[in-house]
């Protein structure tokens, strides 16, 4: 009787998410927008199919690294397992796209309509207790 192979647990992700964020070895990180080849709509995050025309082919377009902080909140009670306080905000990019992201910096320091810039950092711990890196924004 063949011995049952012990199932090995796959390690959890430490990077979120290669389709959305590129961190070049010798360059600055950027977010990836996706332009529908059928109707031309640019979206972030990637939506398949395109919600406007159901097109299924896209061209990747690097998005602007700087945007305007539309609004934010300093969070003192957060998600289970996330250390508080942390800060979240909406960032409007010149491409007419709004990004929800964590903000790197101190509480009580952000203001609406100030310029912020893309960076990366740990957004949470994964199932193996390791930090997950993703996009964040910080003051310019």
């Amino acid at each position: 009787m063949a011995e049952k192979k012990k199932s090995e647990k796959e390690p959890d992700i430490t990077f979120y998410h290669p389709d959305l964020l590129e961190v070049p070895k010798n360059g600055l990180p950027y977010l990836k927008g996706y332009k529908c080849k059928k109707c031309g709509q640019l979206d972030f995050p990637k939506l398949t199919p395109c919600p406007t025309c159901w097109g299924e082919e896209f061209e990747m377009v690097p998005l602007s690294r700087r945007g305007t902080l539309y609004s934010f909140s300093d969070l003192y009670i957060g998600q289970p397992g996330l250390k508080t306080p942390y800060i979240c905000g909406y960032i409007d990019l010149p491409e007419n796209i709004r990004i929800f992201a964590m903000l790197k910096g101190e509480v009580n320091t952000f203001k609406c309509d100030e310029e912020v810039e893309l960076t990366t950092g740990p957004i949470r711990m994964n199932a193996d207790g390791l930090p997950i890196t993703s996009y964040m924004f910080e003051k310019v």
């Binding site: 979120y16 539309y70 609004s71 934010f72 909140s73 969070l75 009670i77 957060g78 998600q79 996330l82 942390y86 979240c88 905000g89 909406y90 929800f100 992201a101 964590m102 609406c112 957004i123 949470r124 993703s134």
Partner: peptide, 18 residues
């Protein structure tokens, strides 16, 4: 948004801030 720390209190708080 949840992956990036989004919570309902934060969503409303951002409305209030703006």
């Amino acid at each position: 948004e949840a992956v990036h720390g989004g919570v309902m209190t934060g969503k409303y708080a951002m409305r209030a801030t703006r």
